[in-house]
Amino acid sequence: MSRIAALPLLEVEGLTKRFGARIALRDVSFELWPGEVLAIVGESGSGKTTLLNAIAGRVAPDAGRVLYRALDGAVADLVTLSEAERRRLLRTDLGLVHQNPRDGLRLAVSAGANIGERLMAAGARHYGAIRARALDWLARVEIDPARIDDMPATFSGGMQQRLQIARNLVSDPRVVLMDEPTGGLDVSVQARLLDLLRDLVAEIGVAVVLVTHDLGVARLLAHRLLVMQQGRVIESGLTDQVLDDPQHAYTQLLVSSVLQL
């Protein structure tokens, strides 16, 4: 690992968000290191999706900072960044994989165009080269390259999700935020997607913040874990340590509730 790895990629400090009288996030802080997968687990209403949206700039926090360290070392607070800059980052350095792939795809254009868009937005101007990259990525996410000109609406849910992932990864992002990427998919499809994600992430070295209610997904993909309850981080640590030896009563409850098949 290079010297840059000595500094965190993302530093979240004191993030707080209220919706009316309800507090969705209470003073949440954590760091994300290059190449690591951090899972945020908790039940519905724990605040984990709000946390992801706050980091992505889709919801404005009431307090706190989200410091992102770019490749050149420059640090910016995503919360106070201009919309112009934020949108540029979301097309290049950052990725956002939505739970429902239809929210993260252009449904009116082909699979190839969906993957090629970030490249074209960044200035790619050779049709053949863009198409070749798209074909390459379709293969990497295990979609038949012959479907490059097909519309996403003709894809299964699992394929749409893999297309969404390809659309994000094509720009070589340094951080990808994922919201329940396997939610809503059949169990066998989930398993295949998880294997793919694990291989891709290891191969590319991208850092991931992964929101999930499924501890099995966290166990398989994440190096570290944050456990959230009622807007607070109540426990954090290495995935295996937290899941094998939970300290907080709530974490113990979560772990013991998981069916062992």
């Binding site: 112009a84 949108r87 097309r91 190839g112 868009e117 937005a121 960044a122 049709y127 490059i148 000109d149």
Partner: peptide, 22 residues
């Protein structure tokens, strides 16, 4: 207006790509 301010013209090239693809 935001797209022009950001020179966010990727969508336009997506259309041209689609034309050629189809």
């Amino acid at each position: 207006r935001k797209m022009h301010a950001l020179a966010d013209y990727g969508g336009m090239y997506v259309k041209l790509y689609e034309d050629i693809a189809h």
